[in-house]
Structures are given as structure tokens and as C-alpha cells.
């Protein structure tokens, strides 16, 4: 799509969307959001860029192959599960290394641990998978219309 407005808007919108998507991932544990929603939002950013600049430009901008991103995501989620196995013998048990338990049983500190790693994994898997489908579809459609034009 060749539209000056779209391309200009994209330049602002895409980084904004990506930042928002990370924010949504981070706050998802306590407020609406999380890995699925954050990941989908990041995909929208990628899709916007791909529509404005073409799938090849979007691919270059991502730097890493989308399926690789998805694979890393799945690995991260699995690693979060194995963390629990190593420390406590239970797969996917929540681990909170930055929390300390006070003598009265209440906990204090930063609630960051395996659960956030898991949610990040979900985020990356959704982002990578959907981007991959999108790029492949656009490529196929482009190749198809190219041949028809011949």
C-alpha cells in the first residue's frame, strides 16, 4: 500500500504500539493485559509496518526470523516451567526469587519471577507465530499476483 499518510503515521505508531505492548505484558498480572494481549498488540504493530512498507521491510526491521522469535518464546515458557522443577521438583511452579518472607508470614519485595518469564514466553510465541503467518501469506499473495501479471 503506498500512502504517504500511512507511512508517516506508521513511523510514530509502530514504536508506540510496541512500547504499549510491553507495558501491557508487564502490568498484566495485576490489571487487564498479559502475554496474549501484549503479543497480539505487538503483532498489530508489525502488521501495520508490513502493510505500509512491505513484508520484506518488516522482516528486516524485526532482524530475527519470526519463527525463531516464536521458538525462543516457547523455550522461555518451558524454561520457566523447568525452573520450578530444578528448585522445587514441580513443573511450572511459580518461583519468586526477589520476594522475602517476613517472620509473620507476609511477603515483601518485587513480585517478579518465573511467572513473568512464562508470560514473556507467551508474548514472544504469539508475536513470532502470527507475524510468520502474516509474512508468508503476503509473500505468497505477492508471488501469485506477480505471476498472474506475467
Amino acid at each position: 500500500m503506498n500512502s504517504v499518510i500511512l507511512r508517516t503515521a506508521t513511523r510514530v505508531l509502530v514504536p508506540l504500539l510496541l512500547i504499549v505492548s510491553l507495558l501491557i505484558l508487564w502490568r498484566g498480572h495485576n490489571e487487564p493485559g498479559g502475554g496474549f494481549i501484549g503479543g497480539l498488540m505487538a503483532v498489530i504493530a508489525v502488521a501495520l509496518y508490513a502493510i505500509a512498507a512491505g513484508p520484506n521491510a518488516a522482516r528486516r526491521a524485526l532482524r530475527v526470523d519470526p519463527l525463531t522469535i516464536a521458538g525462543i518464546g516457547l523455550l522461555a515458557a518451558t524454561a520457566a516451567g523447568l525452573w520450578g522443577v530444578v528448585v522445587d521438583g514441580a513443573f511450572l511452579k511459580g518461583m519468586w526469587p526477589l520476594l522475602t518472607t517476613a517472620p509473620d508470614g507476609s511477603k515483601a519485595g518485587l513480585p517478579v519471577g518465573s511467572v513473568l518469564l512464562f508470560d514473556t514466553g507467551v508474548f514472544l510465541t504469539v508475536l513470532g507465530s502470527v507475524s510468520a503467518i502474516l509474512f508468508a501469506l503476503e509473500d505468497a499473495v505477492y508471488a501469485h499476483s506477480h505471476r498472474e501479471a506475467e
Binding site: G28, H29, N30, E31, G33, L99, K107, P111, D119, V122
Partner: peptide, 13 residues
């Protein structure tokens, strides 16, 4: 699970 969003806590924990 230290989360206030019950839906998300179910999903990730």
C-alpha cells in the same frame, strides 16, 4: 500467586 488479575493468574500460574 501475587497477582490481582485473576484471569491472568489462572493463565500463567
Amino acid at each position: 500467586a501475587f497477582g490481582r488479575n485473576v484471569v491472568n493468574v489462572i493463565l500463567v500460574d
